[in-house]
Structure formats: C-alpha cells, structure tokens
C-alpha cells in the first residue's frame, strides 16, 4: 500500500515538475548590453533563449553546434526572417528598426524556441 502511495506521489510530482518546467517557468532573460549578442544552438536549445534589449538595431551571432537537421533554420515569424544556420560557423542576423515588443524565434518546426524582448528606451 505504501509503495503504491509512494509511486503515485512521485509520478504526480513528476507531472507537476513537467508542467512547471515547460509552461510556468520562463527562462532567465539575458540583457543585451551592446547591440551584438551571440546565441548558441546546442543540445536542442538556443542559449540564451530569452534576450532583452533596448536597442532598435541588433546583431545576432548564431553559432549552431547542434548537428540535428531540426536546428538548421531559425525563423523570426513576426519579422519575416528565415535564415539557414551553417554548422559550427558563425552566422550573423542583423535586425534593424526593431519596435518594442516580443519577437519569438524558433526552428522550422517550432521545437527550438527563443524570445527577443525589445523594451522602449
């Protein structure tokens, strides 16, 4: 009986942790100090995945170290940007005339996810 309660409790806790991890916790935001920031594509994630900036022009240096075909493209849907990321090479994406707002960036399938937050000065 104890083992059943223990197992179910651990499983329920696991479900709660999954919900918190995927839906409730927002990743730590990285403040872009200059107008240039490097984003690594590695192990299924963008690092950093949340970037906050006040710049209206931003240079994003993507370095793709993840060989998975899923990570081959990065898409900024709201900015109509779609760039192929070469493996183990730096790829610059220049964003200009950025207006305050939240811009999602994802891989082609929406599995790798990141967010660029532009705050007004």
């Amino acid at each position: 009986m104890i083992s059943i309660i223990l197992f179910n409790s651990i499983a329920a806790l696991l479900i709660i942790l999954i919900v918190i991890w995927f839906w409730l916790i927002k990743g730590k935001s990285t403040q872009a100090q200059t107008n240039e920031i490097t984003i690594k594509v590695k192990d299924g994630v963008y690092s950093p995945s949340r970037i906050t900036t006040k710049q209206t022009k931003l240079v994003l240096n993507f370095i793709r170290e993840d060989a998975s075909p899923c990570s081959e493209y990065v898409l900024f849907d709201q900015l109509s940007i779609h760039e192929q990321l070469p493996l183990n090479k730096l790829h610059k994406i220049i964003l200009s005339n950025l207006k305050p707002g939240h811009y999602r960036f994802t891989c082609q399938m929406g599995m790798y996810q990141g967010e660029l937050i532009v705050n007004s000065n």
Partner: peptide, 11 residues
C-alpha cells in the same frame, strides 16, 4: 506527461 500517466496506470 503521457509517459508518466502510462506508468501510473500500469503500476
């Protein structure tokens, strides 16, 4: 979550 639920059910 489905994997955990599967485990709970069979257990």
């Amino acid at each position: 979550i489905l994997a955990v639920v599967t485990a709970i059910v069979w257990f």
